[in-house]
Write a protein that binds this DNA or RNA. Structure first.
Lengths: 259, 259
DNA sequence: AGACGTCACTTGTCCTTACGAGTGATGACT
DNA sequence: AGTCATCACTCGTAAGGACAAGTGACGTCT
């Protein structure tokens, strides 16, 4: 019957008490919290109030609830998968960006034709309703089991120069880059990182727990003339994955920096 | 009285119906949804069921609810702030990473002494409980009003070489980098990007709406010998901000790439 | 005209009750 | 011994009622 007071609603007081107990280490990671009935007795409140408090903690990603079992303190896990972006500038001016990610494909890629939306059009520097080739993949990292949704979008204008693309649209991205550089094009990248809550279909296909955002990575590749050639999107759960940009220079860097 | 069926729980059916109405454009962005009473009548369910459905849509970030007013379709806004990371490798080997972000400081920086946690220790390649100088700032982007929490962590071993740091720990990061490179050190960076749900104090200080993740950016700067010199962390709401890495090369890039 | 109280509407909080459904242990039956 | 029904515990869903609190409009009083 530990009494609680102060900040606003009852369920928030209960949530704050439990949260504090978790963060202070009173409940270890993976520990089983008291059941709803026990919390009702402990704080002298009704079941909806307890459930409301628990819902708040779920939304914060602090706990996981299993039907028939109870509430568990979520292990604030280190990410199981680091998407490495190594960017090196060597003395001879060579520019390397290897990417060690080795995904497996969980399904057959599905290819289709579509048109730009406001979002993809902005990234590709195209107007609305421009024709695109699309290819969706479901990727799995074999070592950690992390899933990711991958999408390749190629404007018709890019594909026209590369007959192979229209014939075999499911060509793997790595091979596409080989095709694009065949004619001596120099490529540059622009990677945009965003995070948001998943839509229901993303929750299921990515097998995301509660309160887990998705990392949304969009990579646009430009040719020598600055034209946008291809857009790749990768969506994956932010609970298991992180992005790491490793920036190395052999020469003394010149920079103004802040934050 | 549009009847609904199928997928599992009643409140999920209601939520699915409303979600579909929103995504199909039946309700425009910023539109006012029917009130709880109207939804009760429309679907023939009780108020807890309606509220449960609405809670699900809030958790998805699809709607915003204002006390005394109603539920509004959230405008899927383009980010108001893009944190630019320009990485250029020129022919003469110069390596530039300017950063155009111009934050204002909302408060006086607060400096303190602390110790490494498992997270910060891992990033700084230090053990647990190593002594650190810390400095926290609350930043505001003047054009968009976007807020960010900034933290600088400097190991004692780094600070020892730079007397100015211990005397005036609130030195701005840009100046710190100037001090670090005084002795001809060549710096490299490693930036790690993660996303997660905010803690309550982050929700309030960053003024985050419902179901808004935080982008968590950690930048570790290394000296010539590979030692970790300084750790900067930036936390900001993922609803208004995005990260953009623009990678340019003057020479033909060599790379193996995939996703 | 202006200030202010009231009212109708909204969502927020809290309670009670009831039953459905997943989980694991216990114990009885074969 | 092994199989399986039962039970007690967990959380999930759904309904009902009641009152608090924020919002804005309407109407009355000064």
């Amino acid at each position: 019957m530990s009494e609680i007071q102060r900040p606003g609603a009852l369920y928030q007081q209960v949530a704050a008490a439990i949260r504090e107990a978790i963060l202070s280490g009173e409940f270890e990671p993976d520990a089983l919290l008291p059941s709803e009935a026990q919390l009702m007795a402990r704080y002298g409140v009704s079941r909806p109030t307890v459930r409301n408090a628990i819902a708040a903690l779920r939304a914060e990603g602090l706990i996981d609830v299993r039907h028939g079992k109870g509430s568990y303190v979520r292990t604030s896990q280190q990410p199981a998968l680091t998407l490495e972006r190594r960017i090196t500038c060597t003395t001879d001016g060579t520019f390397v960006m290897p990417n060690g990610d080795a995904w497996d494909e969980a399904e057959q890629p599905s290819t289709y034709r579509t048109r730009t939306t406001t979002g993809t059009g902005r990234l590709l520097q195209l107007g609305a309703e421009e024709a695109l080739f699309g290819c969706d993949r479901l990727l799995i990292d074999p070592s950690s089991g992390t899933r990711a949704m991958h999408r390749t979008l190629i404007p018709f204008t890019t594909a026209e120069g590369i007959p192979l693309l229209t014939e075999e649209p499911s060509t793997r991205p790595a091979e596409i880059y080989g095709l694009l550089t065949q004619d001596g094009q120099k490529l540059t990248w622009s990677e945009t990182v965003r995070a948001r809550m998943p839509l229901p279909d993303e929750r299921t296909t990515l097998r995301l727990p509660d309160a887990t955002p998705v990392l949304h990575l969009a990579r646009v590749t430009h040719g020598t003339d600055g034209r946008s050639l291809i857009l790749e999107e990768l969506r994956t759960g932010a609970d298991r994955a992180e992005l790491a940009y490793r920036i190395t220079a052999d020469k003394q860097p010149t920079r103004r920096t802040r934050a």
